[in-house]
């Protein structure tokens, strides 16, 4: 990415909704670490929001339990377009250690479309920030596509 391009995009901050679909909590505390003073992603205006309706990005952790499948779909549908889905952690991406079970419907891309995968068990906060940076670009691309297709701003 060219620096000028990055600077054009950066002011458009991401609002993120986080959904735990059966994760062990390891990724979730790393997400908390990402937003708190050491890594402080909030300085870029990125923050966790309380409702999917306010979000640009849906952050999903966990291998999706049967109990959560329908709920995850509903949350996804509530996020307004353009939206980007980030999966944080190996188990959401592939199942990882939870590769076979009677109570799982995952991985996440079996339920909803996924745009960015952040690997690691759990990924380090730096990796989550990198995933968010990729999401910014994707979101911008999706926004432009929507504009071209004639959607109002």
């Amino acid at each position: 990415m060219k620096l000028t391009r990055a600077l054009e995009i950066l002011p458009k901050s991401l609002w993120v909704f986080h959904c735990n679909s059966g994760s062990c909590n390891g990724c979730d505390i790393e997400i908390v670490a990402t937003i708190t003073p050491r890594y402080d992603i909030e300085r870029f205006g990125m923050k966790l929001v309380g409702s999917p309706r306010h979000a640009d990005v849906l952050l999903v952790t966990g291998p999706v339990t049967k109990y959560m499948t329908e709920r995850l779909r509903r949350i996804y549908e509530q996020v307004p377009d353009p939206k980007v889905v980030i999966v944080v952690g190996n188990c959401g991406a592939s199942g990882d250690v939870f590769y076979k079970s009677y109570s799982l419907d995952g991985p996440v891309d079996n339920i909803i479309p996924v745009d960015v995968y952040v690997h690691g068990c759990p990924p380090r906060p730096e990796a989550i920030i990198e995933g968010a940076a990729k999401a910014v670009l994707l979101l911008e691309k999706k926004r432009e596509e929507l504009l071209k297709a004639g959607a109002s701003r």
Binding site: G62, P63, Y67, S103, L104
Partner: peptide
């Protein structure tokens, strides 16, 4: 409870 029941104890059998 139950939304995050992954069946871990069952997985361990294999």
């Amino acid at each position: 409870p139950g939304s995050i029941h992954r069946g871990i104890e069952w997985m361990a059998r294999e």
